[in-house]
Design a protein around this nucleic acid. Structure first.
Lengths: 244, 244
DNA sequence: CGTTTTTGATACCTTCTTAATACCAGTTGT
DNA sequence: ACAACTGGTATTAAGAAGGTATCAAAAACG
């Protein structure tokens, strides 16, 4: 067991804060399967004693992992690692959630909030009736004040009577309205930035961008959201882990 | 660590301002992967002391990188390199697989099979020793005779002594050699096609392409394969299903 | 030649991390 | 009911990090 503590020990000489170092190492250890799912981790005091760090530092590292959903704490009982089944590899997270997790300050600027007649493409993809109308939302997505993506969402008017009512998070709004998105199909392509998108995103025209097209479904399998997101390629990284 | 400082040191004799020289060198170092995402850079005072420049100079250089979004500063904490926004994907199916299912005939043409000295980037990503050599494989991927993607794989020479021995499937070869890839991390970005890739892929220079970078791991968690695949955006469309 | 801008150095301020405590509040086993 | 764990919270303090204001020399410019 002793080598294990060694591997978790943060390095004082590095300039990265101790708690971040420890958080990373502990996350690696958990992912490497050092502890069984639902097994208690060593207590905060044990970490503190064995690694020669203060309990506050150990605790702050655990806070990070808690934020990532890797562990769960039970007051008086202990800290447990979250069973893998409950943390699907590809969680459907909103832009807002993802940024907060990364320590950025998310914000958005509305470019458009209007009611419109759907295009043919939208009618098909959202399974609309020919006469239905839609709400169109277009905005810049910012992290710490920097434009990271341009997002255009289309929703059936029936689910979103007032376009102005949406706050900073569309998903939060849909949750509150009783129509949470639980599943989504996402297509990813590369496109050259057109003049309008380039201008909104603050990049040169023709620059390569990732175009993510997502169709969100509610629990009863109704397509409720069609979102095109043009992602600035220098800030986004799409990651997939494959196993066989 | 000492050679590193040497490489960052600006040259007083040059006419370009010290802080610009330093900014450039530091940016190169970051791009070369000297520090991990979310890791802290040395402090401004450390740079100042080690490089024999004033703290303001070091700071002005960091200002430049901050402007470029390469780094983030946290008052009282340190300077960190900006993490990319990771968008997790799973159940990723590529268009080639769909093509196969639809009955297209995949094939490939070798462009290069050689032994080479790894780039700095490859050394980092494959965890190589500085003296190790690698095999480089480059080929066109075709479907019914049309170029769909350009693929360049890099493997440690130790695992693949003879580049010519690889048949049409790299994975089949590795399986037979007793080093099957069981897990892979795949990153997807958008890039503008450079002159060489454009020529090989039969498209115009500057056209947006999907660049898929895959690192394959064996059962004992050793990185054995680094593959860059430039996918023609008119033929590729990655699909992922997300849940929460 | 004088003026303005750039560059670099110094000193001081604010904020964050880390640590050392102490104490509170649930949980568990005896 | 109790003792001995667990996590949760608050306080204090020192040290280290980025933030900022000021000034001097050098370069660029009119």
């Amino acid at each position: 067991m002793d080598e294990r503590w060694q591997a978790l020990k943060p390095d004082e000489a590095q300039s990265t804060p101790l708690y971040l170092q420890f958080a990373r190492k502990l996350a690696d250890a958990i992912n490497a399967g050092w502890w069984q799912a639902d097994e208690a981790l060593p207590s905060e005091r044990t970490f503190s004693d064995e690694l020669g760090i203060s309990r506050v530092t150990a605790r702050k590292a655990l806070d990070v992992l808690l934020e990532q959903g890797l562990i769960r704490r039970r007051h008086g009982s202990g800290t447990f690692i979250t069973p893998r089944l409950e943390q699907p590899l590809s969680r459907l997270t909103s832009f807002t959630e993802m940024l907060k997790q990364k320590g950025f300050e998310p914000s958005s600027v509305w470019l458009e909030r209007s009611i419109a007649t759907p295009t043919h493409d939208e009618v098909i993809k959202l399974g609309l009736s020919p006469t239905a109308q839609v709400v169109r939302l277009k905005r810049q997505r910012l992290a710490d004040g920097v434009v990271m993506a341009i997002e255009q969402s289309t929703l059936p008017l029936a689910y979103l009577p007032d376009p102005q009512a949406v706050g900073s998070s569309l998903y939060a709004f849909l949750d509150a309205a009783g129509h949470p998105v639980v599943r989504a199909l996402q297509h990813i392509r590369a496109v050259n930035a057109g003049p309008d998108i380039a201008a909104s995103a603050g990049i040169k025209q023709g620059e390569a961008m990732l175009l993510m097209t997502r169709i969100g479904y509610t629990a009863d399998n109704v397509a409720i959201e069609l979102t095109d997101t043009w992602c600035r390629n220098d800030y986004y990284d799409f990651v997939a882990e494959l196993r066989r």
